[in-house]
Design a protein around this nucleic acid. Structure first.
Lengths: 213, 213
DNA sequence: TAGATTGTTAATCGATTAACAATC
DNA sequence: TAGATTGTTAATCGATTAACAATC
């Protein structure tokens, strides 16, 4: 058990955002940046940037600021982009296919190992150079391949069943796209992507705006 | 300008979650629920539930709790599920198609009016009974159809260009799926869906967990 | 009426921001 | 050295939780 002080989830959630902005700066050829400059670009306070980064270590230098490439690599390490995670996609519908084609994932250390579906229409198709396998073959597949993460893109009612199945096969992380708070009786990390929640927040904001006009 | 006290975005973001849990309770045929019972189901405090709901009004009754159907409808109203929003999807790739087939959106008051793409391979296809139109026809389309929201499912570099275009045509809300913080010089509400940020948070948590074993 | 549970105020906790000494 | 900017402590702010009087 680690003795480090607990880092709040608010900080963790900001890390990928820092990573994106640093990547942009790198592409622009910018070598160094102060917390002040970065705060202006990101629309947050310089104080927050320095506090956030100092949860993980002193990456900057007084009087100079931060070396963009160094900071980019450090945040990448914290986020584990250099640790590779093998993942599978369950459900080869449009969402599953969209994720299978998401080229960014490779760059972040996520390696697509397999795509599974139950539909005979989809099994055998090739998506991003990977053949869709029948869900029934997942058992034997998982014996020959270490799978860290499963992305669940199956219909609502199937989601808990499939989650249970993959958890028992030893998958350690689930990325859930069904509009439910997935809970299973296994020690697995679950991230829920609630697209319709996000859209409803947009709807709320639009309604508020119209009201105040 | 409204004189109501400002409701925090933390509260707003919880509303769709309440709405989902109430929908589940309705389906289970449960007529009434106390903040205590709901708090156990949702894994939050009863205090938070009562505080959140009282931002919008007193929906409960002392000694009784909350009527599930009534509360469901009230939260629905707050979220604007009865106000219809017309939306279009730009980009008929896998993500665009996934969203076009998302049947939940209808139920929440979001009406798909059109799908646009530039690729001649996709234009003319039918998705969820809607024909994919060429992006070049968007101008005239928007003259004949009131569009509230545009969902942007186009490649990274195209995103700001397309966002600018639809904002000038009068679209009031943007749902952005590109891994960037979209900013445009128009008075438009933007919700960003950062899928790879979410996945990186999952990766971080997995790394932490492995470290602490 | 007695019991239950809300609505709401007050207390606590945690996250954000400000300030500044350390130091490059 | 003087100027700039970090790392870090202290102050502030806001969100969450606890407590309880009101009331169904």
């Amino acid at each position: 058990m680690s003795l480090d002080k607990k880092i709040s989830v608010a900080v963790i959630k900001r890390l990928p955002r820092y990573y994106r902005y640093l990547s942009d700066l790198l592409k622009l050829g910018i070598k160094r940046i102060s917390s002040k400059e970065l705060s202006i670009r990101m629309g947050i306070t310089a104080s927050q940037i320095r506090q956030d980064l100092n949860c993980f270590g002193g990456f900057g230098q007084q009087g100079y600021g931060y070396n963009v490439e160094f900071l980019y690599n450090e945040i990448g390490n914290i986020l584990g982009v250099n640790d590779n995670f093998n993942f599978i996609i369950i459900g080869a519908g449009n969402m599953g296919r969209a994720l299978a084609n998401y080229s960014n994932f490779d760059k972040r250390g996520f390696i697509l190992k397999g795509i599974f579906d139950i539909s005979p229409n989809l099994v055998g198709q090739t998506i991003n150079n990977i053949e869709v396998l029948p869900l029934s073959s997942l058992d034997s597949f998982s014996k020959n391949n270490k799978i860290d993460i499963a992305m669940l893109c199956v219909p609502y009612e199937q989601t808990p069943i499939v989650a249970d199945k993959v958890a028992r096969l030893g998958v350690k992380g689930l990325w859930n796209f069904s509009p439910m708070d997935l809970k299973i009786p296994y020690d697995v990390i679950i991230e829920n992507v609630h697209l319709s929640d996000s859209l409803m927040v947009l709807g709320y904001k639009l309604t508020e705006k119209l009201k105040n006009l």
